[in-house]
């Protein structure tokens, strides 16, 4: 049985044209490649730090 109130929560307001600019700015732009690069950078940094300690 459908609960009207619960179902209503699933409906979000549709974006209006004036909100398009904000939506673009807030868009998540991180993909797997960025994450991989981030991981590689962190790995390099750790390697450098452990090399100094040694």
């Amino acid at each position: 049985m459908i609960n009207f109130e619960e179902e209503l929560k699933n409906f979000k307001p549709s974006l209006e044209v004036e909100e398009a600019e904000q939506a673009i700015y807030n868009h998540e732009l991180v993909d797997m490649t960025d994450m991989m690069q981030e991981m590689l950078r962190e790995f390099k940094q750790e390697m450098q730090m452990s090399g100094r300690e040694a």
Binding site: S14, V17, A20, I24
Partner: peptide, 13 residues
């Protein structure tokens, strides 16, 4: 699907 602003967002990006 009628979500025009979402469509515009994707195309601008």
């Amino acid at each position: 699907m009628g979500e025009t602003v979402l469509a515009l967002t994707e195309w601008v990006l």
